[in-house]
């Protein structure tokens, strides 16, 4: 959905330009117009089915319903795929939504063709071609779990669970702040979420960081979510400028802490690498292998 942007170069954005130095990385919606447009033929079919007799109406409405379900599954599949691609450790989607969407689009096409007296052969062909085109246009769902090589699978599962919980908190935060109906606040929360997601990616890469960051991904994030829900309720009711200022300060403090902690985790990883290199060099030297 289109929304008014309140960034640095917007008329209302210049006042706070100095306060938010971190740029917001724009993200492209995984669904976009291409999946939303697939709802149009279903609506057309449902509308035009009236006036063709009871059989055509039943087939047309069934086809429209199947198409709508297929388009919805495709959209959900694209979202699930984008979430899978964004993460370094991820399980494959439990339900192959895009492939089911292709099957439903094909089935809906058969029903829609039958409602227009095309005949079974022609309808089956249209249906198969529609399913093939859908598969070509949208692809298939991820079929394999994604994991990092050389990292214990049990640890990766633990991380995946914590990341899932953290993502749920972030989603709840974004849902709450949208109730405040302030695009600049939404952009601010989105930027905070980016710093949290940076930490999530760091922990996914090295599950040993999970213990050190557990409080950040659990308790603190839950606190941020609760504060956002309360703030959104207050701000939606009376647009309290003081509450907004307090909330923005809380977000800034949290963001700084998350960024600092992520930097510390990365530094620790670098130290681990240096230690590993030193140990390996020592062993090789003891074996009489010269590295210089």
């Amino acid at each position: 959905m289109a929304r008014k942007f309140g960034g640095t170069y917007s008329p209302d954005g210049k006042r706070d330009a100095g306060r938010d130095p971190t740029p917001l990385h724009a993200t492209v919606s995984p669904t976009g117009a291409r999946s939303n447009l697939l709802f149009v033929p279903g609506a057309l079919l449902a509308f035009l089915s009236f006036g063709g007799g009871p059989e055509a109406l039943a087939l047309g409405l069934a086809g429209a319903g199947t198409w709508t379900l297929g388009a919805w599954l495709t959209r959900e599949g694209l979202k699930a795929e984008a979430a899978y691609n964004a993460r370094k450790v991820a399980r494959r989607p439990a339900l192959p939504r895009k492939m089911l969407g292709a099957a439903l689009i094909g089935g809906g096409t058969v029903l829609a063709s039958l409602s227009n007296d095309v005949g079974l052969t022609g309808s089956a062909l249209y249906g198969l071609i529609a399913a093939a085109l859908h598969l070509t246009a949208f692809g298939i769902d991820p079929l394999k779990n994604k994991s990092l090589q050389g990292v214990d699978e049990f640890q990766q599962d633990r991380v995946a669970r914590v990341v899932d919980e953290a993502e749920a908190h972030l989603d709840a935060m974004m849902g709450a702040i949208r109730r405040a109906r302030d695009p600049r606040l939404e952009a601010r929360v989105e930027r905070f979420q980016q710093s949290v997601r940076q930490m999530l990616r760091t922990v996914e890469e090295d599950p040993r960081d999970l213990t050190a960051s557990r409080r950040y991904l659990g308790v603190y994030l839950m606190g941020a979510r609760d504060a956002t829900i309360k703030f959104a309720d207050i701000y939606a009711r009376d647009r309290d400028a003081g509450a907004k200022s307090d909330y923005l300060m809380l977000l800034t403090d949290l963001e700084e802490n998350y960024v600092a902690k992520t930097r510390k985790l990365l530094e620790d990883s670098n130290t681990d690498l240096t230690v590993e290199i030193d140990v390996l060099r020592d062993r090789l030297q003891r074996e009489g292998v010269r590295l210089d």
């Binding site: 096409t109 829609a112 227009n116 529609a130 246009a137």
Partner: peptide
């Protein structure tokens, strides 16, 4: 795909 679906619908 879009034109196939629209064509069948119409």
């Amino acid at each position: 795909l879009f034109f196939l679906m629209s064509g069948v619908a119409v």
